[in-house]
């Protein structure tokens, strides 16, 4: 099973990582090499084995009380915002060419 250049381009599109043609070639070969390195896990018979998503096995039901805490001021919230307007965070057109997904 190997990924084509088009497959990789589609992943880059989804992951919002713009790649040039040359980068796409390099990324395609990297991806296929990297996936080949993962072969060892395909050799396991893991039917009936439960997955471990969290390393602290028996930890459950961690929650907090519904009590308010101090957050950020507007100024703190906007400190790192590259483009803001009237207290809002501004973005260019969300729909449009290449953005309709």
């Amino acid at each position: 099973m190997s990924l084509s250049r088009q497959d990789v381009a589609a992943i880059a599109d989804y992951a919002r990582i713009g790649l040039t043609d040359a980068e796409l070639d390099a990324m395609t070969s990297y991806m296929n090499d990297a996936i080949a390195l993962l072969d060892p896990i395909l050799e396991y018979d893991i039917a009936g084995v439960e997955p471990t998503y969290h390393p602290i096995g028996d930890l459950a039901n961690v929650a907090r009380d519904d009590a308010a805490a101090v957050g950020l001021s507007l100024q703190e919230a906007l400190t790192n915002v590259p483009d803001s307007q009237g207290g809002y965070v501004r973005v260019p057109a969300i729909l449009g060419e290449g953005g309709a997904s």
Binding site: R64, A69, V70, G71, A77, G87
Partner: peptide, 22 residues
């Protein structure tokens, strides 16, 4: 509820933009 799902910010409706954030 008093606060949001995963943080202690108040649930608000009419506050100025971006003033109930963390």
């Amino acid at each position: 509820l008093e606060t949001k799902m995963f943080c202690g910010c108040r649930i608000s409706r009419d506050d100025p933009p971006n003033t109930n954030v963390c």
